[in-house]
Amino acid sequence: MGLRPGGPPRGGRPGDRRLAGLSGVLFVRHASTPGMRAACFPAPGEEADAASLTRAAALTRTAAGAVVWAGPSVAARQTVAALGLAARVVPALAEADCGRWRGLPYERVAREEPDELASWLTDPHAAPHGGESLAAHAERVAAWLESVRAEPGVVAVCDAGAIRAALGHALGLDPLSAARFDLAPLSVTELTVTRAGWRVAHVNRKVLF
Rank of each mutant, 00 (worst) to 15 (best):
G2H: 02
R4P: 00
P5T: 06
G6R: 15
G6D: 14
G6Y: 13
G6A: 15
G7C: 06
G7H: 05
P9V: 05
R10V: 05
R13W: 12
R17W: 10
L19Q: 08
G21W: 11
R29N: 01
A31C: 12
P34R: 09
P34D: 11
M36W: 12
A39N: 12
A43C: 14
E46C: 06
E47F: 06
A48R: 00
T54H: 14
R55S: 13
A58E: 11
T60M: 09
T62K: 08
A64Y: 06
G65P: 10
W69P: 00
A76C: 10
R77W: 05
R77N: 02
A82T: 00
L85C: 07
A86G: 09
V90R: 12
P91D: 14
L93T: 01
A94Y: 01
A94G: 12
A96R: 11
A96T: 09
C98K: 02
C98V: 05
E107G: 04
R108N: 04
E113D: 14
P114Q: 13
E116D: 15
S119C: 11
S119A: 15
L121A: 13
D123G: 09
P124G: 14
P124Y: 11
H125K: 15
H125C: 15
G130F: 13
G131P: 04
L134W: 10
L134Y: 08
A135C: 02
A135V: 00
A136P: 05
V141S: 04
V141N: 04
L145T: 05
E146V: 06
A150D: 12
E151A: 12
E151R: 13
V155C: 00
A156I: 12
A162H: 09
R164S: 01
A166C: 03
G168D: 03
H169S: 05
G172N: 04
D174A: 07
S177Q: 14
D182I: 07
L186A: 01
T192I: 02
T192S: 08
W198L: 06
A201H: 09
H202G: 00
V203R: 10
V203T: 14
N204E: 08
V207C: 12
V207P: 00
V207H: 12
